[in-house]
Design a protein around this nucleic acid. Structure first.
Lengths: 199, 199
DNA sequence: TTAATATACGGAGGCAGCCTCCGATTGGCT
DNA sequence: AGCCAATCGGAGGCTGCCTCCGTATATTAA
């Protein structure tokens, strides 16, 4: 059985200080924030940081796992929503907001989803699984094109989130995500403004 | 009358060796390739590299300007194409291929397009301009939704290119770009499914 | 050809970040 | 109190960025 010896008091204290400072640092400087800086601000030697979190990814994983779980939970909740496509869109939209919280997180998440050897892969798996139920339902009810996969959808979301960061002002991701859902063709059943551009 | 004094022979030689090695290095290791390594391989001191190219961006700009010009030219040529939307798609598709040549190039280009202070901004400007003519034509002829801007379109392309790199195998970007054009809704009156030529 | 000089070269050196290793310290237990 | 395994901390080795300046050389004038 996995008997876990309780941590020594100082170890636990440092562990928690490190997580706090890491959260701050990543939010402020993005995922590339300096680890030595995190250790410094936590009032801890660099060696201590590396003992608790052997890699940057390990540190990020600890911080992110809860978020991924929350997204999975949200997906399950949205299965109760009456409109399958709207539910899916809502889920993706929230997921996009979450991956926008610090710079570099989108890249990280997209990598984790496609690279099985990533430490974050496992953390993401439950989330993808939960999301795929929303996807399947939307397909089954004829609201989502049947030839698109969950992975493609997630990737498109991450792409929109990534690109949203390059648009001035907030709401960029939402706008792009909407475009992706609607497509780019002008079409009759979509109301189009009357006036052709002058010129 | 910008009389340009000819470079000293050794200077010109080094300049060219540096560009060659930079091309190699960026292609192999992405835009973050070590500058000291480039200098080393070019058989030149690091100081010499920095004299010719004060920043990494300056070096990249020199390498990329020709590419951007080529893309602008391609856009102009495609104005002769009979089908406006197909022409636009073809242009974007080629542009996406070009930004996939080395890792980090997509990010770089997207940044350059949105940040006026970037050294690459000027280089991109003509390309965006040329592309916007394709966009306007497609709108005018009612094939492209009128509420989307050239910048959004370029950003969506870059997003697709970025995301394509996270899909296994080649052709990821093409597939995603097609999805973006067609939209994600299931719909009876869509003629052709988006998708990579599975053969 | 030689001398003068503007031009260009090269790498040492200072800084920061990554990560490892191991002697010093200390919490927890008897 | 005293022991010792668990934990700490940071020096040190490495890489990469970038600047500065003494040295070397291509070019030109004599």
């Amino acid at each position: 059985m996995t008997e876990v010896k309780p941590m020594r008091a100082d170890a636990r204290r440092n562990y928690e200080r490190l997580l706090e400072e890491a959260q701050r640092a990543f939010a402020e400087h993005g995922v590339e924030a300096s680890l030595e800086d995190i250790a410094r601000r936590a009032g801890v030697g660099i060696g201590t940081l590396y003992r608790h979190f052997p890699t940057r990814e390990a540190l990020l994983e600890t911080l992110l796992r809860a978020r991924f779980d929350a997204q999975a939970e949200r997906a399950r909740a949205l299965l109760a929503h009456a409109e399958p496509l709207a539910a899916l869109q809502a889920w993706l939209s929230g997921l996009g907001d979450a991956t926008g919280t610090f710079r570099g997180l989108v890249e990280l998440t997209a990598d984790a989803l496609s690279d099985e050897s990533s430490r974050l892969y496992a953390s993401c798996h439950a989330m993808r699984e939960a999301g795929s139920h929303l996807v399947e339902r939307a397909k089954r009810e004829g609201e989502l094109r049947p030839d698109v996969t969950t992975d493609e959808l997630l990737l498109l979301l991450h792409a929109a989130s990534w690109a949203g960061g390059h648009l001035p002002g907030p709401g960029g991701m939402q706008r792009l995500l909407a475009l992706v859902f609607e497509g780019l063709r002008a079409s009759e059943h979509r109301e189009k403004p009357a006036g052709a551009p002058a010129g």
